[in-house]
């Protein structure tokens, strides 16, 4: 199974076993080893999504699904957006 995890700063692909069951939270955790810099940007030291970020699956806020427990399927895109003020 392939998943895309992206933000405005770039994107990366996760290769997972076929038919694996993985949710948004687990997908972000799986970034930790291969891309620690991106992981640090997205998750705090306890492994929680940083409060200043919002997560979308295929363009839809995870709030309208099952939050970080939203199950992902092959080809899904997890997109991470910072909540920041612009001037």
């Amino acid at each position: 199974m392939r998943l895309k995890v992206a933000s405005s700063q770039g994107e990366l692909w996760l290769e997972l076993p076929e038919h694996a069951s993985v949710n948004v939270g687990q997908a972000l955790q799986s970034v930790k080893d291969g891309n620690p810099e991106a992981y640090r940007r997205w998750c705090d030291s306890q492994g929680r999504l940083r409060r200043s970020l919002a997560v979308f699956v295929n363009g839809e806020h995870v709030r309208y699904r099952k939050g970080m427990e939203t199950e992902l399927s092959d080809g899904d895109e997890v997109y991470i957006i910072p909540m920041i003020a612009g001037g």
Binding site: S8, P82, I84, G86
Partner: peptide, 17 residues
């Protein structure tokens, strides 16, 4: 983000979020 783009770096994401 702001060093690379200024605040225009968030326009796309904020439009969709």
């Amino acid at each position: 983000i702001v060093h690379n783009y200024g605040t225009c770096g968030i326009t796309h994401d904020s439009a969709l979020s």
